[in-house]
Design a protein around this nucleic acid. Structure first.
Length: 499
RNA sequence: GUCCCCAUCGUCCAGAGGCCUAGGACGUAGCCCUUUCAAGGCUAAAACACGGGUUCGAAUCCCGUUGGGGACGCCA
């Protein structure tokens, strides 16, 4: 009880880091961090056919991006290594020998194709099928004969009579009849362990105290409990978390589009937003709070808060979380994160990289845009008119805002008024006051002039607040953009707006 | 088919016998703010799967039905 908790995430490297796997990793990590425990990363690559190095790299990369760091595992080592199951084969062999010697397991010479046929035949009739223990009943001589003939064999666990039960932190007491468990294979005929064996042996060796994993493992757990018993080890605490579904209430899979962490990374989601969203999928702090930073999540996390029902992945809400977390970031941090995006758009200047005027100015631009953005990429879109030298008018904007008569004169008057402001008067308040004065003097609604000016400054109909923006665009560029607008209006002399 | 699990607004959650006229959030609609679009604020529509119990009292406990999911591999 006073033991420091040891938890682990044990992905099999047969694909990319799935969103569900990421959440499982997160829950384990959260619990370990919450209780000053140890978080172990172990790669379950006993299926040599399907495992790959690329996949390992991708999974580690995804975890790092999410900020889920491990205390023991690939890259960092630890006292319970190695952390790749493919390098722990000897341990499994030892365990199997012990189990066979103690009568908990036995060799099976039945061939996979054979068993498959029989199983399918039984299921075709609508009946269930459990291994019939043919090899348990075969008798000494027959067994020896098969062995001598070099027939490949697997090792099966001999499931005892009785019932098996365990207490699950989210499900409560689970109690099942052992007759519903077959004598499962623990060692394949090629000498590799199966999942059930390796997971238990490793969790024992690595002194894992809490196993938090997907609900799809709930029905495997009795097998594991049996194995712990046969190995003379005490089982850990289990917590089976509900699965994540797509909008069609089917288990989340490639059919639903983005399901890997990398997909979300590429789509411009913030790791903290994904973490926050994932944490709340199947877990609740108990109250109404929804926006959590990484550290507040660690503080709030409990296994008891994990709910029972499967959860649908709501993309829209993830987007909202992304906006929330961008709002939480400092403008400086946003600048750093947005740099690559701005570079791509050709809007980045070297001077932005170091502290100083231009960077301070860019930070102001970002601050102006921050609240209206859900993705970093949107900064580029909105900031474009502020960062670029010239603007081009969108035709829709021209049609909507530059077609009323007499605009040229109004704009000229505004330009003169703005030209009369010197550098330090060129700030939002004076700019607004000045524009409204011009509008009054010319008996037009301020809105008309504001909208036209917006088009002149950005080329678009939508933008952040005009005056704050003009302030940031600065006196020189503002004056020349107004001049350009006048020219445009003169050339496209708007007369009667008769379409 | 067998075993196991689950069941509150469209979605994610709150609710651990009276505080529930069922609360919050996303989304949706309307209003306010306003120079546009957002953001923000306010308001609205929207759920305890069904049937039996237990109890003075049930979204909460029990049983059943229905629905959903998972597991039944020499995959993990």
């Amino acid at each position: 009880m006073a033991l420091t908790p040891r938890l682990r995430f044990a992905p099999s490297p047969t694909g990319f880091l799935h969103i569900g796997g990421a959440r499982t990793a997160l829950f384990n990590w959260l619990y370990a961090r919450r209780h000053g425990g140890v978080f172990v990363l172990r790669v379950e690559d006993t299926d040599i056919r399907r495992s790959s190095d690329d996949s390992v790299a991708g999974i580690l990369d995804g975890l790092r991006w999410l900020g889920i760091d491990w205390d023991e595992g690939p890259g960092v080592g630890g006292p319970h290594g190695p952390y790749f199951q493919s390098a722990r084969l000897a341990n499994y062999r030892v365990a199997v020998n012990r189990l066979v010697a103690s009568g908990h397991a036995y060799p099976c010479f039945c061939q996979p194709e054979d068993l498959k046929e029989r199983r399918e035949a039984a299921q075709a009739e609508g009946a269930g099928w459990l291994y019939d223990r043919a090899c348990l009943d075969r008798g000494e001589k027959a067994l020896a004969r098969l062995k001598d003939a070099g027939v490949p064999h697997a090792i099966r666990f001999k499931v005892p009579e009785g019932r098996t039960q365990f207490k699950d932190c989210v499900r409560g007491l689970i109690d099942i009849d052992n007759t519903t468990i077959e004598d499962f294979v623990i060692l394949r005929s090629d000498g590799h362990p199966t999942y059930h064996l390796s997971v238990v042996v490793d969790d024992v060796d690595m002194a894992i105290t809490h196993v938090v994993r997907g609900d799809d493992h709930t029905s495997n757990t009795p097998k594991h409990i049996l194995l712990y018993g046969a190995l003379g080890a005490a089982p850990p605490q289990f917590a089976h978390v509900p699965l994540i579904f797509g909008p069609d209430k089917k288990r989340l899979s490639k059919r639903h589009g983005a399901t890997s962490v990398t997909d979300y990374r590429q789509r411009g989601y913030q790791p903290d937003a994904l973490i926050n969203f994932l944490a709340l999928l199947g877990w609740s702090p108990g109250g109404d709070r929804e926006v959590f930073t990484r550290t507040s999540l660690v503080q709030a996390f409990t296994l008891e808060g994990i709910g029972g029902g499967n959860a649908v992945f709501d993309q829209g809400k993830l987007e909202w979380f992304n906006g929330q977390h961008i709002g939480l970031m400092s403008a400086e941090a946003v600048v750093d994160e947005a740099q690559p995006l701005l570079e791509q758009a050709g809007l980045w200047r070297e001077a932005y990289a170091t502290a100083g005027g231009p960077r301070a100015w860019l930070v102001k631009v970002i601050e102006l845009l921050k609240s209206r953005v859900r993705f970093l990429a949107e900064f580029v879109e909105y900031a474009q008119p502020l960062l670029a030298g010239e603007v081009t008018y969108e035709s829709e904007a021209v049609k909507q805002r530059l077609s009323s008569a007499g605009l040229g004169g109004h704009v000229a008057a505004l330009r003169e008024a703005y030209a009369a402001l010197d550098q330090d008067q060129f700030e939002a308040r004076s700019l607004e006051h000045s524009l409204r004065t011009v509008a009054d003097a010319r008996s037009i609604k301020a809105g008309v002039l504001i909208h036209a000016t917006r088009v002149g400054m950005t080329g678009r109909t939508v933008s952040p607040g005009l005056f704050e923006m003009v302030e940031l665009i600065g006196r020189d560029r503002t004056l020349s953009r107004l001049k350009a607008l006048e020219q445009f209006l003169a050339e496209h002399r708007p007369t009667e707006p008769t379409p």
